[in-house]
Amino acid sequence: MKFQQLQQQFVAYLREPDKNERPVNVEQERLDVYRELLFNNVSGFVCAAFPVLKSLYSEQAWQQRLQLFFAKYRCDNPFFLSIAQSFLDFLQHQYQLQPDDPVFMLELAHYEWLELDLATRKAQAWVAITDLKQQALQLSELSSVQAYQYQVQQICTEFQPTEPQASFLLIYRDPHDEVKFIALNQLTTLLLQLLEQQPGLSFAALIELVSPYVPQLDYAQLSAGAEALLTDFVQKGIVHAFQAG
């Protein structure tokens, strides 16, 4: 048997020993130890990244899902943090939902992954805003605006919703490197989404884009409300001056 074939057989057995033949001339005990080390390493990062999701399953049910992921995981990125992204991708694109999976499973997994992503994301130095109405604006790279069907920020073993209830959130990393969230109304969500999608908007341009969605507010009312909101977000480091490139 060629080395490449032996290598493929070895990897296939480590992924799914119940479905693949044991490589020849390799002791069973050595295979078991090696597989256990690899599996525990990968599953340890998944458990650390998705603690709330893990807490909603029995140990046996959670291990079953980890085994399914381990069998599919290709480890094409050298960074350990990418394991969480791979697990989320697995749930979104390869995993078949089971009857005992909560209806909010995918949204909760995304929310927990986003918390980790923001906690470890690198951002360039930013320029503070000195004149909100004159400088071009952008949302911080350490912030993300999200709309979920379920209130993922409240889910725990004691609170597991079965019916959708929309949740609009700003998830961000504060100056002390703590990841936090702010519950938003639809208007504030729209305002921040525009800044996120179109960095470099001026205050006047932002108001002009938002205005058609709130015809009940005149320009002065909308401008005053947006100014108060954005001033608060500037103080929190969530909105800052636009930097090209």
Rank of each mutant, 00 (worst) to 15 (best):
Y13P: 02
F90H: 07
I83L: 02
L68C: 05
G44F: 06
K54Y: 03
N77Q: 13
D76H: 04
D76I: 05
L56E: 08
L106R: 15
Y34V: 04
R74T: 12
A61N: 14
W113R: 10
V33R: 06
Q64S: 13
F45P: 00
A12Q: 15
L14C: 12
S82M: 03
P99I: 15
F79G: 01
D89P: 03
Y73G: 09
F70A: 02
V33Q: 02
P23L: 09
S43E: 02
E59M: 05
R35W: 08
V52W: 05
G44C: 06
E16F: 00
P23E: 14
P99V: 13
R22K: 15
W62K: 08
S58N: 04
D76Q: 04
L38C: 14
P78C: 11
W113C: 09
D89W: 09
Y34Q: 02
G44I: 04
Q92V: 06
L106M: 14
F79I: 01
A61Y: 02
P17W: 06
Q98W: 08
F45A: 09
A48S: 00
Q94M: 10
M105I: 13
F45H: 05
Q92I: 07
F39K: 00
K54L: 04
L114I: 10
Q98N: 06
R30V: 12
F104K: 01
P51Q: 01
Y34E: 00
Q94G: 05
Q85R: 14
E27H: 06
W62L: 07
D32W: 09
K19E: 01
S55I: 12
L88H: 10
S86N: 11
N20P: 09
S55C: 12
S55D: 10
Q28A: 07
L56R: 12
D101Q: 12
L91G: 02
L108N: 10
L108V: 08
Q28I: 03
R65H: 06
D32L: 15
R35L: 04
Y111R: 08
V42Y: 03
Q60R: 01
E36P: 02
C75Y: 12
Y111S: 08
K19T: 00
L97N: 09
A61G: 03
L91N: 06
K72C: 15
Q85L: 08
